[in-house]
Every structure is written in structure tokens, then in C-alpha cells.
Design a protein around this nucleic acid. Sequence first.
RNA 1: GCCCCCAUCGUCUAGCGGUCUAGGACACGGCCCUCUCAAGGCCGGGACACGGGUUCGAGUCCCGUUGGGGGCACCA
Length: 438
Amino acid sequence: MGIRVRFAPSPTGDLHIGSVRTALYNFLHARHEKGTFVLRIEDTDQKRNKEEALKGIVDGLQWCGLHWDEGPIFQSDRLDVYSRYAKKIEESGRAYWRDDPGKGRALVFRIDREKIAWDDLVHGPSARDISLDPDLVLVKSDSFPTYNFACVIDDHEMNISHVLRGDEHLANTPKQISLYRALGWEPPRFGHMPLIMDPDGEKLSKRKIEKYHGIGLPVIVEECRALGYLPEAIVNFVALLGWSPGGDLELMTLDEMIEKFTADRIGTTPARFLVDKLLWMNGIYIRKCPIDRLVELTRPYIESTYGPQPVEKLREAVRQQQERIKRLDELPALTKFAFAPKIEYDAKAVAKWLTADGGRAILGDLRAELSELRAFDKAAVESVLTRVMEKHKTKLGNVAQPLRVAVTGGTVSPPIHDTLAILGRETVLARIDEALKL
RNA sequence: GCCCCCAUCGUCUAGCGGUCUAGGACACGGCCCUCUCAAGGCCGGGACACGGGUUCGAGUCCCGUUGGGGGCACCA
């Protein structure tokens, strides 16, 4: 029988990068072992649950390609199960009711007063003495189970064999093991992985989202998507934050990660999440992306800025920019010359390439030759550039740049023949005329 | 305060006692390519926190110090 693992988020907020990694490692572990990946929603905090959060989690996981085999199972649907076990533990004498003047009556578990040991999948042999720890609340005064209670019941009932979770749970584990013992159950194997840190070296925090935003650090999956990161880049990058297949291998598909993943290769050192390498990796995946898919992915960015576009033109624009962008949201700015009806001329560019050093003369010659071209294609355009270049006894750059400035307004664009091709003869000539008047 | 975790280039990491004058990637600098910007190629600077052990031999094992992080809820 295969192993069973779970990802068990609480629907209290957005799916962030740390959760993605937890989900990913559990997913990889399940797939590597040909086991089952369960999605369980830990919605036992009535006050903090948020309606939209669930959708964000579900959509985010699917966008990342982390598909689950069972679930989502909601703990709020299983309250009768928890109360049955609560009664059982109470009857066994291991739990007692405690009154709190403010909060009300809660069922409390007498933890083992001893040192609890377990073999951690990441840290190896581990132990912690909980004899001085406070007892564990199982049932809150609103009659909902606590995390530590519901988690143990569910992991057992769902036959979860391996639990990979963050180091923040390290203190819970011995108490949970104590609960397993009281119920006469075999605990699953636990593995605790180090937290993901922000650039300041602190745990990623919802409270610092504004700050992260300022430095271009996407911590929410939805934000990653909006900024134009590809899921394969996010997943690949996040996988490497705390795990390595060994050796020099870094760029991996999900399938390759599944093949290579073992929990004992999860590191013990907290990793900082800096955006540089993610950006680079996203560029890699953008360049790898088949053009048809890339067109569909980028269409919203362009059309929300410039309105509906013919697919051929869209495709050509994307083709031209594919190796130049690191994020899809860079596209509108880079393709402005192609899609905006009106361009603005950059004063510095005009001064350098048009006003000075006979740029106008060159541009005039180009205009004359281009207007007489029968076929406005790459070969024809290049022959024009060459002729003008030779006539003026200069370098190609001194011909291409004035032309580039004239038709795009600036000094940066795809290769000049591509730039002209996407604009078409009419626009090119009109813009040259406009530039000649500057 | 108490408990716990962690410690290799700026960052992500490889390294599981000798093959380490410590490898790769990102970032950075230089060069090449070149009509601009990218992409790509080549080269370069850059790390085993510190102190004790153990051992013939330590980045690798043990202890301590320092530093960083996490946890101490009727949150998960």
C-alpha cells in the first residue's frame, strides 16, 4: 500500500509562497512514492475563516499544477468525529474540563510528562521534554476542536503516513505524539522543514506585504500570476528554497522533481527569498514557452492596455519580445511602439540620432527608398539599409538608430527589420514624416 | 525570560572524514557577439562565523561561544 500525505491549509488568508512550498514538497513526496496526496481544509477557527481564502488556495494549487487525489476535506464537516473522540479521551481519564471565566468551558488533555522522541525525516533523531509544558486544549469553548486535536484525529483517520510541515510546528509534534499514544495509535512520520525567510531574514509575514511589494517580491500566488510569472518558474524556484536534488541540477520540470525528490534531501537551513534568481528563472521559462501558449498568456496584458488586437500581430509582437522579457507584465511597455496609435519621442534620443550628425539626411534617404519598396519585407528593408549606409559611408548603426528613433520614439526595440515589419509600410512612413518635422 | 532549530561566496546551494588550493546557479565587474535592447559565449572577484576538542587527517564528527531564526494561544 502506498504512502499518504496531505496539505492542510487553513482558509484564513491568501496562499503564499511558504504554503506553496509545503504543498509542493508533500506533493512531490507523494508522487515520488506513488502515494496519495490529500487536500484538507483546517477551518476550525470560526472567527478567522474567510470565504475568499478557500478559492485562492484551490486556484493557486491548481495553477501551480499541484493536483490532489482526495479532498478537499473540510474539518468543519467532521465535528461529530472530533466530539466522538473527545468523549472517548475524556472517559479514559486523560482529559478534563476546565473553566475559564472569560472564555468558558474547554476540554483539556493531560500530556505525557516525559521526554518524547521521534525520528524526523529532515532533522533525524529528535526529542523534546514536554514534562513542564502546559496541558493541551482539545475542544474550545465554542465546541470546535483545536488545531492539535483535529489534526491528530484526521491524520490518523485518513491514514496519513508522512507529515511534512514547517519548523514552526516543532513544538507541537511531541504533544501530538503524546495524543497519538493516549489513543493507542501509531503516529505518522514527521518531517520539519526550515521556514522561508524574507530579505530581512525574518519569517514571511502578511504584515509586511506592502514592503515586499515595494521591492518587487511576490509572496502571494495570485500576485505571482498577476505580475507575469509562469507557474513552472514559481514551482521550480520554490522547490530549490530548501531542497536540492544534489549536484548542479537546478532547472527541472515537475516530473523531474518528482523523480528526484526525497525528504531526506530537504535542507535544515532557512532560506531567504530574494527575487533576482526567480526573475532569471522566469525569463528562462518564458523563452522555453511555446509561442502559442505564450500568446494566450500575454494577450490580457497587451489587450488590457491597447485594446483587442489581431492574433497575427499579437503573435509577432510576442515572438519579438520573448527573449527580452523576464515577466509578462513588461510587455505593454515594450510593445507600445507597435500597438499604441501614437508614440512619444524621447528628447535625448531625438537629439542624438535625428538632430545631430546628419541623422535627418539619412532618415530622408531612408524614407525615399522605403516608400518605393514594392515588397516591404525583411530582405527588401535590409537592402535599403545597406544602400543608405554605403551612400553615407557609415556604419549600420548610424542608419538603424535614426530609423529606430523615428518609428518607435526611442533607442530600444527589436531588430530594425522586425520593428518595421510589425508596423507596416503605412505607419513606418507616417512616423518618419512625423520625425522629420521634429 | 524559558524551550527549540539553524550556521559554506551578497543570495540559493553542492559537499554525507582524505578526491576541497571548496563545485554550480543568481547577482555583480570585464571581454566577445552586435543596428539598439536583450539573449548567448568566455573570463574575473567572492564563502567553510569563532574557539576548543576527536582523528594520521575536519567544511564534513563532538562541545562551547557568537550570530540568526522559530515557538511558548480555547490561531493554525
